[in-house]
Design a protein around this nucleic acid. Structure first.
Lengths: 357, 357
DNA sequence: ACGATTTGGGAAAGCGTTTTCTCACTGTAG
DNA sequence: CTACAGTGAGAAAACGCTTTCCCAAATCGT
């Protein structure tokens, strides 16, 4: 019955607390921000008024006044991909420790949407993590200046924005060498999205591998980045005269595996399969998947630490170097084995149950 | 050389555009918001000034003025869990269609953090989705009023906040009936986190199942919600005199499966295993996992649609009903089979390679 | 006991928009 | 030719905070 004259609007604001405690908004603000120039008595009064009213400062008002939101954006090509999920979790948890929240932007593998999404994500927060953007090089270069503070993952720009990369080039070579050591000479690469920069790195790595081993015969098959892409590509792969497949990533390898299974072919007996990333389930497929483990958790953690330095304006010399390359680690499991020596050059599928009739 | 007197601060704001176009901020604002009371000539001039300067309105300023952020929060117990990842993707993508962004809050299965996280997530946006909160009933009831607009998933409150639930009670009964039909009479339930409400629903369902089938002997084993939890629990489970296990969810089932494998026991020959959720990989374990499929994509979509109605203040009568229950669908796959009739009551492990010596 | 410091807290100026007022001007009708 | 809608755009008031400025009271030194 006391204050029917107050602005009846829903949210209770700093003014209400000030009134209730009999001080000015300024003082309430000071108390809420732990400014110790306020008398203990008054501070206590303000605090009790605040939580009697269940007052919480509006983040928007605060953001405007302070010029920062304590939020960052993260752009991923596909939120359904375990690798990006893991990265998201890692970035989110690490940033949370510093009181930052993460806003997600999922481009769903649509490169044309990326630059708009990236811009919005950036402006809504204090910085942005661009994870494996699919956009073209030119577009990225042009966009980069307007996006910083920004950390790139699996891409680089000329303007030297911090960039964390996985060494897919070396990783895939190690996988290839592993296959080579098992006697495989006819190998297929089930490629990722054309727009993926990391796919290009894998291709480069394989070229190096091939030039080192002229006796290897490598076939590249268009694939994709998803389980389904791997599943769909099985037909093409089985029609080839090969003894092993390197898939773009674990997801693709698993899709391939499951389809190969349906076709009745034996892994690794007739065909060896390797993935990339070492997602959580890779160890539990049948057979378990040989792959190259990417330390995705560390990548996410580093991404935040660097972004934080940028946001806080840490002077360049005290900052970490602006590039880091993480080495994948070979995980040899059950899906790869010795190359079968087939008397004929017949494609794998011919030995399977479902002949392509 | 023309405007060295301008505030040299980094960001360019509405004032700069106004100056450049020779109009007031008000007009710029009108143009940027597609208000057609502005003369074509002027509008064009403003627009070109705006994109020459690469001007983008500050979301923070805009949010303050408009009283809404076009952002929602989502609280999940564990971002590493495929079910919550799928929900996140679904909510995020659906909300994105309406121009809303999603802020994530991951409590990492720490119930005590939830209420703070929920509050912050809520205040940073226009609404919040609470996904399977682990907090106690009392805490939730108390928090609820301060959180709306809010949509709950797998929980309900007395104050009638919209709530989407999976009918775990029925789902687990169907799974149990399936096992019963296969001749299983001694069954174990590998339970989820105590704090999980959906776990309680499963327990209830199983009680009903048991009272319908007095000949069934059900043992409950403490577990958890993760792959590791399932893996760890294998020892306990294998020591039991049972022929089938119902796991809290697919993740737990998969962990269990992999450990059972290591112990050398046969699934489903010696022991049948069923999961819950039908996460993407459930179909590709060995053997493939019998489970109850949860339409998680639809849940996420509905969650946003309801939240949107709440945010936009759609009158209660034009709104959807405030509760929805989604029925899981039985997916019978390879991990469940006929109950073995063992001559003795010896526990499963005794037949395995690693006896618990 | 009186000026010189400190201390504490109110008033007010931002922060970057949107939006309501208000008013000058244009064109039309009487 | 005057009066009156109707238009279009500027001035200014929010929005909810933080923070600088500044002044009054309290504390100190001598």
């Amino acid at each position: 019955m006391e204050s029917m004259n107050r602005k009846e609007a829903g949210r209770i604001g700093i003014a209400d607390v000030a009134a209730k405690a009999g001080v000015s908004h300024a003082t309430v603000s000071r108390v809420m921000n732990g400014n110790f120039t306020v008398d203990q008595k008054i501070a206590a009064r303000v605090r009790s008024a605040a939580d009697e009213l269940r007052y919480h400062p509006s983040p928007v008002g605060r953001s405007l006044a302070r010029g920062k939101t304590e939020t960052i954006g993260i752009l991923v090509p596909d939120l359904a991909n375990p690798s990006f999920q893991a990265l998201l979790k890692s970035v989110s948890n690490t940033a949370a420790r510093d009181g930052y929240r993460v806003l997600i932007a999922d481009s769903s593998e649509t490169p044309s949407e990326e630059s708009i999404l990236a811009g919005e994500a950036r402006r809504r927060g204090d910085g942005v993590v661009l994870c494996a953007p699919r956009m073209g090089r030119g577009e990225l270069e042009e966009l980069a200046p307007s996006l910083q503070p920004m950390v790139l993952i699996n891409r680089t720009t000329a303007d030297g924005a911090p960039s964390l990369s996985i060494d897919y080039r070396q990783g895939i070579q190690e996988l290839a060498e592993h296959l080579y050591g098992l006697g495989h000479r006819k190998i297929a690469f089930l490629a990722g999205p054309d727009s993926s920069a990391s796919n290009a790195h894998r291709v480069r790595g394989l070229e190096e591998f091939c030039s080192r081993h002229p006796d290897v015969q490598l076939t590249t098959v268009p694939g994709g980045s998803s389980f389904d892409a791997g599943h769909r590509a099985a037909g093409d792969v089985l029609g080839l005269d090969i003894t092993a497949v390197l898939a773009f990533n674990d997801l693709v390898a698993m899709g391939l595996l499951s389809s190969i299974h349906e076709h009745g072919a034996q892994v690794p007996g007739e065909l060896s399969v390797a993935g990339f990333d070492d997602i959580p389930f890779a160890a539990y497929t049948t057979p378990s998947l040989t792959t190259a483990a990417v330390p995705i958790h560390e990548v996410g953690e580093q991404a935040w630490l660097w972004l934080r330095d940028l946001i806080q304006g840490v002077p360049a010399e005290r900052r970490q170097p602006s590039k880091a390359i993480f080495k994948p680690q070979l995980q040899i499991r059950g899906s790869t084995g010795p190359a079968p020596h087939r008397p004929t050059d017949a494609p794998v599928a011919a030995t399977g149950t479902n002949s392509p009739e």
